[in-house]
């Protein structure tokens, strides 16, 4: 794949994060996440094509199953079961969110983090974008009150790290990647179970309704 295509994929990832910030519907968020995951899988597939290692193909497939199929499936079922069409509100309104997005993106591109994005000088722009996606995902988790959005935020954070690692040439051995993927899967299951339990206990997925524990 050409560098242009990679850039496009990364752009998609970045845009999905932005979209996650703005969307009001849970289903929109899930779709955005699937798109993002698909882009990641394509990136991974690309690295398989470049190296030609079969084990990488296996990892790519695993990622595809977990991220593109299973995760959205879980979320959709949760949404269906509990009728959660709309996401819980955010702390900041849309204009402010946009400003913050701009600020975070600028921060990720700042000169201060230059050594980080210059690991592979050729992928300089890509790494910056991946870094922005990471920070934006963090910002998403902070800004969103909905449990589902937070879970998606974490997953998208993880995606951004993976994509950063791929472009920085920091891939791990396939066995470890499989382990990571397994971890992620278990995590996903537990998180989904927790979400439904929370919905049962608190009647909503609004994390701010959890206020039993404070000092």
């Amino acid at each position: 794949m050409s560098i242009m295509a990679l850039r496009l994929l990364l752009g998609i990832i970045f845009l999905t994060v932005v979209f996650l910030h703005l969307t009001k519907k849970n289903s929109g968020a899930v779709i955005a996440y699937s798109v993002q995951s698909l882009a990641i899988v394509l990136v991974l597939f690309n690295s398989f094509l470049e190296t030609g290692r079969v084990s990488l193909l296996f990892v790519t497939l695993l990622a595809f199953v977990v991220k593109v199929i299973l995760a959205p499936l879980f979320f959709v079922r949760l949404i269906k079961k509990n009728g959660l069409r709309f996401s819980v509100s955010t702390y900041l309104n849309i204009p402010l969110t946009l400003i913050i997005i701009a600020a975070i993106t600028a921060m990720a591109h700042s000169q201060k983090l230059a050594p980080l994005v210059n690991i592979v000088p050729a992928n300089h722009a890509l790494l910056s974008l991946a870094l922005s996606a990471m920070f934006l995902s963090l910002g998403l988790i902070i800004n969103r009150k909905g449990a589902l959005s937070q879970i998606i935020g974490i997953l998208s954070f993880e995606n951004s790290i993976i994509v950063f690692a791929v472009f920085a040439g920091l891939e791990q051995s396939p066995a470890l990647q499989a382990g990571i993927m397994f971890d992620l899967f278990v995590w996903l299951v537990i998180a989904t179970v927790f979400m439904s339990m929370i919905y049962r206990h608190f009647g909503s997925l609004d994390v701010t309704s959890m206020r039993h524990l404070k000092d």
Partner: peptide, 28 residues
């Protein structure tokens, strides 16, 4: 000091984020 432990998870996560940002920009 107890206000730190406000019970809001978003705030908690923002502590981590802020700590990260400060640490990053303090060292560099």
């Amino acid at each position: 000091t107890k206000d730190i432990q406000s019970g809001n998870i978003n705030v908690y996560i923002s502590y981590i984020f802020i700590a990260l940002v400060i640490a990053l920009f303090w060292v560099l």
